[in-house]
Design a protein around this nucleic acid. Structure first.
Lengths: 112, 112
DNA sequence: TGTCGTACTGACAAAATAGTCAGTACAGGA
DNA sequence: TCCTGTACTGACTATTTTGTCAGTACGACA
């Protein structure tokens, strides 16, 4: 969709979509809804994602207040991402999206 | 987000987002949730949209089964779009998205 | 010493999406 | 006759997003 992410839209639907929109953001949030994860864990758990894209999306989500980044000063570095309190308000919406998406997939697969 | 719309994603969130994702689709669905509208009515009711983009998005939504296109064979042509029965299953999800988006806009505006 | 893993950044190319512009056919009104 | 409105299509450019590749610093391990 590229709804422009540069500035917040006046349309509430667009405003919400600008937060979860991104090739992998839905999947990232889905993984993190089960608990905090390290960057490399996330990367390995999402087939097809590149490190670059993972980090870009994670940064977007942190900027939007949806995720929190916890860094332990160690070598090798250890960074963990988790869903923030604000981000948790988004989870029920994601669940609604997911439920509809699931039935949509079935519908599409039936139709061919 | 350009989640690729070429093929349906296995991730339900992406599958749902691929339907509503598009610079203007949220707004179009929002307008049509109040009742059927003609192409030109929609265009005039959505500031900033071009006829080209409106028609492209309408065609996407019809292809996905969300909208129905009613054509009256007249000159000048009169085409009306309405939300299909299937599309109506999407409305509660859009409402959840919209409610979250509304509070997100407020949060963002407070923060500056 | 060489290689691996971690969590990144920057520069860039490729792909997808959005937007611009011109053109179509026909009826009605000035 | 000319201009307007309707609902489109096609060709194209521009913008945005995604993906690729190389590079960083440091410790552990062989």
């Amino acid at each position: 969709m590229p709804v422009s992410k540069k500035e917040i839209s006046a349309c509430p639907i667009d405003a919400m979509l600008s937060v979860v929109d991104g090739r992998w953001k839905g999947t990232i949030l889905w993984r993190l809804s089960e608990g905090p994860m390290r960057t490399s864990e996330l990367r390995r758990s999402i087939p097809g994602i590149t490190e670059r894209m993972l980090i870009r999306h994670l940064q977007d989500l942190v900027r939007d207040g949806i995720l929190v980044r916890h860094q332990e000063n160690a070598v090798p570095p250890c960074v963990r991402y988790s869903i923030s309190k604000y981000g948790r308000t988004l989870v029920p919406v994601l669940e609604a999206i997911c439920a509809w998406g699931r039935s949509h997939i079935q519908r599409v697969n039936r139709g061919r």
